[in-house]
Design a protein around this nucleic acid. Structure first.
Length: 290
DNA sequence: AGTTAGTCCCGGGAGC
DNA sequence: TGCTCCCGGGACTAA
């Protein structure tokens, strides 16, 4: 599943294909049109597919950036500015291709939902097997308030201070640390895979309450999360199930994970255990993590 | 008013 | 082969 490192990889790889390209035409899959007709907000959020098809053409993509796990396509049309915000959800993927047939895997070719024809002569295709991703056309970021509620980027000093100050707030003090670091209002971009790895490296039990971790350990945990995220970026992300980069390829970080999805602890060979924390499966070593 | 549980977007993989 | 169940990022809503 795409977390910060995977989204970073997509944004960096996609950027040369989309910058200064004008969106000429938009196509939406029959399945999405049917879902929306049935009143469901599948993938396209905040407006109808018809509005997206009508509104997007003519906009030039001037920038593509990542904020937390979101992708921001900055758009400009004459003196008019807009923002297309994307989220990959569980199984979203972008492919810049000349034809659909260039997408190798059946499961992604079968679930193409939005196609943008760019002035460069190719298609920017959004495919999403489970349709948990989202596309949202805004005039500006503030038009969708949750975007303003996200924690600062983890690679900044501001991000660290925000995380530390949140650890002192009553509503978080009694929470399991795993849920704390996966909460996007506390720390941006750390999902289940990277949270699991960081806690294992720090030998911290995922269910340990935030208040029962010292300030210096919380600081060290933050450093470890940043390290794990950076390793993920350097290795092209983790392709556990359905993450693919813009070339349809897999990342390699999954080969370097020590705890996520493991049956046995790589350090002491003890059988791992699982807990549900904040609604997510949390794998840990009962002997190494306290 | 703050917290928690449920709901919703889904298809695929596991297990029987 | 085919059925059923479970999984999950994140926002929203009901309790």
């Amino acid at each position: 599943m795409p977390e910060l490192p995977e989204v970073e990889g997509v944004v960096e790889s996609l950027r040369p294909f989309v910058i200064d390209q004008t969106i000429e035409e938009v196509e939406v899959s029959k399945q999405l049109l049917v879902s929306h007709e049935a009143g469901k907000a599948a993938i396209i959020k905040g407006c109808s597919p018809e509005e997206l098809i009508r509104e997007l053409p003519g906009y030039r993509i001037t920038a593509l950036t990542r904020k937390s796990k979101y992708m921001y396509f900055a758009l400009q049309r004459k003196n008019e500015e807009a923002l297309l915000v994307g989220h990959l959800g569980m199984t979203g993927a972008w492919f810049p291709v000349e034809t659909e047939e260039a997408i190798q895997e059946d499961k992604f070719r079968k679930h193409i939902h939005v196609k943008l024809r760019l002035s460069g002569g190719y298609w920017l295709i959004y495919s999403d097997i489970r349709r948990f991703g989202e596309l949202r056309l805004l005039q500006q970021e503030a038009d969708y308030p949750p975007l303003l509620q996200m924690a600062p980027e983890p690679f900044t000093e501001e991000g660290r201070q925000h995380y530390l100050s949140m650890s002192e707030i009553a509503k978080y003090r009694n929470k399991p640390v795993k849920g704390f670091i996966m909460d996007g209002h506390v720390l941006s971009g750390c999902g289940n895979i990277y949270a699991t790895e960081a806690l294992f490296r720090m030998k911290i039990h995922p269910n340990r309450k935030v208040a029962r971790i010292s300030k210096s350990r919380l600081n060290a945990l933050y450093d470890t999360i940043v390290d794990v995220l950076n390793e993920g970026i350097a290795r092209g992300g983790s392709s556990i199930s359905d993450y693919r980069n813009v070339n349809g390829g897999a990342g390699s970080m999954q080969h370097f994970l020590q705890m996520y999805g493991k049956k046995m602890c790589s350090t002491c060979l003890t059988e791992t255990k699982q807990l549900i924390i904040a609604g997510r499966t949390s794998t840990y070593c009962p002997k190494c993590q306290r």
